[in-house]
Simulated assay, not measured.
Amino acid sequence: MHVQVLCDSASDLNQEMFQQFSVQSLPLKVILNDEEYDDGIDITPKEVYDRMRDGEAPKTAQVSPQTFRETFTALAEKGQPFIYFAFSSELSGTYQTAKMVEQEIKEEYENARFDVIDTKAASLGYGLVILRAAELAKGGASYDEVLELGQYHATHMEHIFTVDDLEYLQRGGRVSRTAAFVGGLLKIKPLLHMEDGKLIPLEKIRGSKKVLKRMLEVMDERGADLQNQRMAISHGDDLERAEQLAEMIRETYGTKEIHIDYVGATIGAHAGPGTIALFFLNDTYK
């Protein structure tokens, strides 16, 4: 029996990708004006960004214990081995909830074979981990092979991103109110990265034109096997800049596969419209 790969909607993969790679995804929640939506199912990222531009402030909620319980139980009852690769535990409580439910299910179904893994990744960085694990699983790889490769990609995944307006990060407590105000006046664009699952400011860059160039330089410093690996770029409703960055990468490194998609509603609610994020491996592609 093949291994079932599970993830949540913070992977920012679209429904078509989930179907193509036989991935089961559990939606996080987006809350707007006291109405709750399933991320990527009941509401699109585009709708969320449009409403943010109109002044609305979305909130998000993790996958519920009940959803995990029902999903894990259904697979355990069938004797289906599965691995749930989770959104970074530093950005959401979803992983901790899944671990709690894991204990319950394993006590009830002693022969169930599954693991809950903290990827320490987000957006399409997380999505790339899922794609690689799912490809392997679909090809008939063993449980241990899927687990090992998924963990390898999670460990070596780089996240480099910038936001268009510091105000959204300020609302989430990522930067101070003063920094957001001054940054807006000076047109300062922050460059951030992920370190052990946390969002960490890397440097400040004046002017949006310089940001993409600097993202490429950071990738050059950190990346490995840049021509052959699959990369990803996610964007907060700014496809033009995402495609511009992709073209710069292709011209510089001859990279064959760059997946572009929206920063989904869960992460976009905190990063805001105009976010551009780049994901790549810092070690050899496997």
Rank of each mutant, 00 (worst) to 15 (best):
L32S: 12
E257W: 07
D54E: 14
Q19H: 11
G184N: 15
A98M: 05
S9E: 14
S176Y: 12
D50C: 03
F114G: 00
D237N: 09
Y143I: 04
A86Q: 12
E70P: 10
C7P: 13
D283Q: 15
A74F: 05
F280P: 11
F114I: 00
K46F: 08
I267D: 03
A269V: 01
V23R: 07
A180T: 09
N33M: 07
N282C: 09
V146D: 06
A134W: 00
E148S: 14
V163F: 03
S176P: 14
A154C: 06
A242R: 05
D39F: 11
A112N: 03
F181L: 14
I160M: 05
E47I: 03
G223M: 07
E221I: 00
L226K: 08
R132I: 13
E107T: 05
A74N: 15
V211W: 01
I188M: 04
F279Y: 15
E107K: 12
V146T: 07
G173A: 11
I83H: 00
K99G: 11
Q20D: 09
A122E: 03
D38Y: 13
Y84K: 08
M1F: 10
L186N: 01
Q229R: 10
K204N: 12
I31C: 14
L239G: 02
K286T: 08
P45V: 01
L191K: 02
K29V: 13
V263K: 01
T162C: 10
D283G: 05
A265V: 12
M231N: 10
R241I: 00
L6C: 03
E35Y: 04
S123V: 11
F21R: 02
T266H: 02
T255I: 14
V5H: 13
R250D: 04
R113C: 12
L91N: 05
K59F: 11
E145L: 09
G197N: 02
E251A: 14
D34A: 15
L6P: 08
D261H: 11
F181P: 00
Y285V: 12
A98V: 00
Y152A: 04
D118W: 01
D144F: 10
S89H: 09
L192F: 07
I205G: 03
